[in-house]
Amino acid sequence: MTMTEIASFILLLTGAVFFFAGTVGLLRFPDVYTRLHALAKADNLGLGFIVLGLLLQTSSPATALKLILIWLLALAASATVGFLIARRARQNGIVPWQSGDRP
């Protein structure tokens, strides 16, 4: 394996760890708001690492640009959709979970 391949492998693995953590958060966190935190932040970071890992494997500038675009679009979408879901939840009167409540 070359250095580039090793670096790519490490980045992809790191990305997978963050996706895994985001999914665990989605399952374990107690309410809609805390789950949105897990999805928006951990998945954004996971995707960022995976895109970086894949960038090391491509030699085509068009493919590289496409990968970066995917990440930027996912970033904008997850922030906006997270905001919209949280706002709707609050308008519908869903009270945020507090420590001390049953999970």
Partner: peptide, 8 residues
Amino acid sequence: GAQVAWFA
């Protein structure tokens, strides 16, 4: 991301 992963 690291913080929320750690919480999870």
